[in-house]
């Protein structure tokens, strides 16, 4: 049975549909990567699943954790599940911890909340958790305040918080993007080990395809708030069918570095439109080299084998039909 099963999840803000009909499953012990450029709705999807969307945003659909629908249960019940059976690791560890509270207390807080531990027991458990996330001298760091820790250590603390109640599902929203490149790898290795030890299901939001191929079993590509493709890591990364996944892959394998600034050059033509500015029909239409007249209507998400693709002219499956303009400028 799926540990987490998302069905027809949509997120709305003032009449705009920011995430639309997103469906996927994550099984126990499975690692699923959610990929796509920023602005494609990945983080919103994660926040909607745990019920922590910001002001003015509302979610509909289903997000089943075991046999309970996180979107359907009461807020009271959601609080009982959050931090206990489902946990989320945020992107920016620099601001995610309370600056006025000692690390140990913050780590032990979920245990006090869900397991009813005493202050003393929680403090002891916190030191053990800090040791598990490979923080040197955990007893000392338990007495520190967040500003005394580096970004890498703070993200380890966030992981300690996430695993404190042995959750069934861990969501990690770009957990290393805000970190120094030199510590990214070690933090990911730690995440990999923790998830294995816990046997949790992992939904890893990332745009680093190297990480995806090393750590994950399946991939879900999102664009314009929709799932456009999903499948196993091997098939998705070797034979992408959606032109957007194809472009993401091409961009990551041909990482060209700007000689002057040292920044990676954007390798996908065009940029992600602002929310609500996506074209009707296929959202990728105005950046897609394969777009045709047909793409002005929304392609359905079709399953072929273990793959699902939402595209009228998938890559490598059949030759583009006649009448396609390759400029991709159809409006």
């Amino acid at each position: 049975m799926a540990a987490l099963s998302v069905r027809d999840l949509s997120v709305r803000a003032q009449g705009l549909e920011l995430v639309r009909d997103v469906s996927f499953e994550v099984h126990s012990g499975e690692r699923v990567a959610l990929i796509g450029e920023s602005g494609s709705g990945k983080s919103l999807t994660a926040m909607a699943i745990v019920g922590l969307l910001g002001r003015g945003l509302s979610a509909s659909g289903e997000a089943r954790l075991g046999d309970e629908d996180l979107l359907g249960v009461s807020e009271r019940r959601r609080c009982q599940l959050r931090g206990d059976r489902i946990a989320l690791i945020f992107q920016d560890p620099m601001t995610a911890l309370d600056p006025t509270m000692r690390i140990g207390r913050q780590v032990g807080e979920a245990l006090r909340q869900h397991r009813g531990l005493s202050r003393r027991q929680a403090a002891e458990a916190a030191v053990k958790l800090l040791a598990r996330v490979e923080i040197p001298d955990p007893a000392r760091y338990a007495h520190s305040y967040p500003h005394q820790l580096s970004g890498g250590l703070r993200q380890r603390v966030m992981m300690a918080i996430a695993i404190s109640c042995d959750p069934d599902v861990i969501l990690a929203d770009e957990p290393t993007t805000a970190l120094d490149v030199t510590v990214q790898r070690r933090v990911l290795e730690l995440l990999d080990r923790l998830v294995r030890e816990e046997g949790s299901a992992l939904l890893l939001i990332t745009h680093d395809l190297a990480v995806v191929s090393e750590m994950c079993d399946r991939v879900v590509t999102m664009y314009g708030g929709r799932v456009v493709e999903s499948g196993s890591v091997e098939s998705m990364l070797t034979a992408p069918q959606h032109p957007y996944t194809d472009a993401l892959l091409a961009a990551s394998s041909a990482v060209s570095i700007d000689g002057a600034s040292g920044e990676p050059l954007p390798a996908i033509a065009g940029s992600v439109p602002a929310a609500g500015q996506f074209p009707p029909g296929c959202p990728y239409r105005d950046r897609c080299p394969r777009a045709s007249q047909q793409c002005t209507t929304m392609p359905p998400l079709e399953a072929v084998g273990d793959r699902t693709v939402a595209c009228w002219h998938p890559v490598g499956r059949e030759e583009p039909a006649a009448g396609i303009t390759t400029e991709g400028t159809l409006k």
Binding site: C79, F90, Q113
Partner: peptide, 14 residues
Amino acid sequence: QSDYLRTARMKGLS
């Protein structure tokens, strides 16, 4: 709007 408040909510605090 603070992230640490969101973290606290993530732990299951109301």
